[in-house]
């Protein structure tokens, strides 16, 4: 795969003394590569096109990753502003390489058992609790942004491109009908751009959706025959989890999942310890 960003990544690697091993992922204005450092360490090298990305968001992402030193959050090893030979500015992030793939890859192979879902949720709740401590909201938790180290089953949150720092002013205009996030995994407050209600409970909702997908391959708000856009619409209009979902979760001993995806933040768990206890019960 070659692209404009690929040549910039190669150029950045030459400067850093790294060697590109392979392509990993691409976003709207960034690409990630596997690279090897002079010491032989495998890392993820992310190149962001500053002319297309919102630099303030990139700055916040970097600041957030620097603040969070948790084993459940991808480690930022280095960051550099990089001027390429084409005269343009890029941001280059060196992050730890997570060799265990994404949750999305794993779910493509098989669904999780209730036991596995419980373990997954417990780990993810610990991760968002760390973010909460730092007054951060990820806002884009989905299977593609949950990865694993090659030697561990602990899920790791990656891609903080949409992170909201509650101690800073919001970057989203209040007149926008919808706030940032992947709609299918977004909470009603994100879908309705209710900025005043965005907090750790927003991530709790997305983690709940991930749990539901991992267990049943269905969104909690999905009724029989609904298309994904209809599910998003049902979420935005706060229809609430389907009756079938509630029943199923109760039967599986995962009633806490129902509370995690309630339409209003105030209806979800207010304290992460409470949520952990409910999941462990």
């Amino acid at each position: 795969m070659t692209s404009n960003l690929h040549s910039v990544a190669e150029e950045a690697c030459r400067t850093l003394g790294f060697k590109i091993i392979g392509f990993q992922a691409a976003g709207a204005f960034k690409e990630t590569y596997r690279a090897e450092t002079p010491e032989g360490q495998i890392v993820a090298l992310k190149v962001i096109d500053r002319s297309r990305a919102d630099f303030v968001r990139t700055e916040r992402e970097i600041a957030a990753l620097k603040r969070c030193t948790s084993t459940r959050i991808a480690r930022l090893l280095d960051y550099k502003a990089f001027r390429a030979n084409n005269g343009c500015e890029y941001d280059v992030c060196v992050e730890e390489f997570l060799g265990g793939g994404t949750l999305e890859d794993r779910l493509a192979e098989r669904l999780f058992t209730p036991f596995e879902v419980r373990s997954l949720l417990l780990e993810l709740v610990q991760a968002i609790a760390v973010l909460r401590e730092h007054r951060l909201v990820h806002r884009d938790i989905k299977p593609a942004n949950i990865m694993f180290r090659h030697d561990s089953e602990i899920p790791i949150l990656v891609d903080f491109g949409l992170v909201r720092d509650l101690s800073q002013h919001s970057l989203t205009m209040s007149w926008l009908p919808q706030g940032p996030g992947t709609p299918y995994f977004s909470s009603p407050e994100q879908l309705n751009n209710e900025k005043q209600s965005i907090d750790w409970r927003t991530d709790q909702f997305s983690v709940g959706v991930v749990g539901s997908i991992a267990l049943t391959a269905r969104h909690p708000y999905e009724a029989e025959g609904m298309t994904p856009p209809q599910v998003v619409a049902a979420t935005a209009s706060r229809k609430g989890p389907s009756g079938e979902f509630r029943k199923q979760m109760e039967m599986q001993g995962l009633a806490a999942l129902v509370k995690m995806v309630r339409p209003w933040p105030v209806q979800r768990f207010s304290v992460h310890q409470e949520l952990i206890t409910a999941l462990e019960d």
């Binding site: 209710e194 209600s197 907090d199 209003w264 933040p265 105030v266 207010s270």
Partner: peptide
Amino acid sequence: NDAFRIASAITS
């Protein structure tokens, strides 16, 4: 919904 909306924001 206003009651839930207010309560959600206030408990943030």
